[in-house]
Nucleic acid binder design. Structure first.
Ligand code: MN
Ligand code: MN
Ligand code: ZN
Ligand code: ZN
Lengths: 144, 144
DNA sequence: TTACAATTGAAAATGATTGTCAAGTTATCA
DNA sequence: TGATAACTTGACAATCATTTTCAATTGTAA
């Protein structure tokens, strides 16, 4: 369970970076928060217990978490970068409601395979993919 | 094939908006330019023949073209919104090289159907989807 | 033509993110 | 256990794409 912290420590030390109080606090808050948070949202959550942690530090740390593979960056409709933990998560895609912002995650091996095939046909070596569906959820449709 | 201009005029008039010299010039330039241009790139191209067309007008007009269905907005890796004409284009996805920025378009009915199925399973009414693959093209791999 | 709402261009404002820098911390090793 | 060098932090300024503002101009219905 503490292994995420350990692997972050390891990543930092392997890259000549330092383990700091702020970085550990931010990691903890990230792991105990709902998924798909933006740096700003995380900063706001931290603010109450750690009012002295700076805005830029949260941004910098989220970038480190992404680089270390602990977090994944996501870009949905709005302009903010969002993050979600990579821990024990299957590779998944997102279905997003334009009305209420609800995010539904789904996996689909068939789609995944077809995408790999497409990349292969073009002799591309894939680094990452982005796949999101946007629409109205049943609740929002009813509410109208 | 002035029909795109006609449908833009129709869209404008149907929405209580006006057909202006600038809007027609911008539409023409858009249609005769390579695809996946950003508003700024379009502005730069217009600059030589129409140095008096303002930056904001290009932004505003591209938004209108998207709203009218003549153009589609695209968001690739960089931070700019890009546009491509919707005319006679099949619905397609993009494969983008991280090295040289090359963009390969592909269609895939099987993927499209699977995505529709996913949306259906969750009773979502889809408005749009985003699907891009990022990686290294064969040229860029060789060059390294 | 007139009358009036829509549009324009220039410049300022916005908002997310990144850069700067002086002061504070961390890891190392003598 | 220090001394030291390198990294980090927080506050704030800077960026960059895009949007807004506003006074002057233009399109259009009648
Ligand atoms: Mn997710
Ligand atoms: Mn395209
Ligand atoms: Zn909803
Ligand atoms: Zn390439």
């Amino acid at each position: 369970m503490g292994s995420v912290r350990d692997s972050f420590r390891e990543y930092l030390s392997d890259h000549g970076l330092k383990t700091t109080r702020q970085r550990e606090i931010i990691l903890d808050e990230f792991l105990s928060s709902p998924s798909h948070l933006s740096a700003e949202e995380l900063y706001l959550r931290l603010r109450s217990n750690h009012p002295n942690i700076g805005y830029a530090t949260v941004y910098r740390t989220m970038k480190l978490l992404a680089d270390s593979g602990i977090a994944s960056e996501r870009h949905f409709g709005d302009r903010q970068t969002r993050y979600e933990p990579n821990i024990g998560e299957e590779h998944h895609y997102h279905l997003i409601c334009n009305g209420c912002g609800k995010i539904i995650e789904f996996e689909n091996g068939a789609i995944e395979q077809l995408l790999l095939d497409v990349a292969g046909e073009h002799q591309f070596t894939l680094s990452h993919q982005r796949l999101e569906l946007y629409g109205m959820c049943p609740d929002c449709k009813a509410r109208k």
